[in-house]
Design a protein around this nucleic acid. Structure first.
Lengths: 159, 159
DNA sequence: TATTGTTATACTCTATAACTATA
DNA sequence: TATAGTTATAGAGTATAACAATA
């Protein structure tokens, strides 16, 4: 007899097969997030970019000459936390910190050709990872999920 | 003129208003997760339980006499990581480690009356937090989101 | 005074490896 | 040999506070 069955037997008539947790969006969001992030890591390999480095590179490619402060704000992290991310991308020679004429406080982030190529390869790998992981979900389900997640993102309180 | 507009002007005809990231489930999942977890923390207060401690207590209440190994497996974390969680719950006097007759290696986790009361209060606070945070979403949208997140949870590769 | 990038530091969460006591 | 709980340790990822350079 399994432990679960043994526990259930302690309180007859009560369904122990589902926890309160299973009804919580936060709990399900966390568990789903862990699965997807784990698969992302596997897909990009041992020396691949982490999700946050990939995100930073994506935004630098999309918005060349973005400043670190702007990038941090877009990513929802502190400026201080971005330093190590930019350091890594610079060490990989995917971008460089460029001085901006007119404001010597600012560092513009400029992707290199190698950085753009690395991003193109990475985004293909990431799309392949999602296509494979979510192959049991229909396009409609994926679109619905995306829309609902964006709705949650819209609920964020502005600070 | 905004920076985004300035950047868009650099490559006419290309829509820079949306990043590749916005189409990725993983990215949206992460951003949504951060918002919900942050609101969870605010809702439970400065000396409230963290999400993982709340989860552990929930499972202990639901499955009294669960072992630490079983609880770790249910939570998807290592046994070693559970020690600090159980330590905290024991320090709060929400549960106790009980010796099990017949196998002296095992510690059964038994919620106290105070633990059950604390859980009842916490689950109410958590439900209130989700009801408030997701008040712009219909019951149908929330149910759909839950179902899709559970579908992702079902994709986890078994180790 | 305010902002940009940076450093120092600490905290949370997690994992791996090794240990002990039991089985 | 294998398992349950534990400890030591390290690595992400994050935040806060303070600083120098610059505006």
């Amino acid at each position: 007899m399994s432990r679960e069955a043994a526990q259930g037997a302690q309180r007859p008539g009560v369904d122990h097969s589902r926890s309160d947790l299973e009804d919580l969006i936060g709990y399900n969001l966390k568990r789903a997030y862990i699965i997807v992030q784990s698969d992302f890591r596997d897909a990009l390999g041992a020396d691949g970019m982490s999700a946050r480095v990939f995100t930073a590179l994506s935004l630098c490619v999309k918005y060349p000459n973005i400043t670190q402060s702007e990038l941090a704000r877009m990513m929802g992290i502190e400026r201080s936390g971005l330093v190590a991310i930019v350091d890594e991308l610079e060490a990989r020679e995917h971008l460089r910190r460029a001085r901006v004429p007119g404001d010597r406080r600012v560092q513009a982030l400029v992707p290199t050709d190698a950085g753009r190529a690395a991003y193109d390869a990475a985004i293909q790998a990431v799309r392949a990872h999602e296509d494979r992981l979510f192959s049991d979900m229909t396009s409609s389900e994926r679109a619905t999920l995306l829309a609902l997640l964006k709705k949650i993102r819209g609920l964020e309180k502005q600070q």
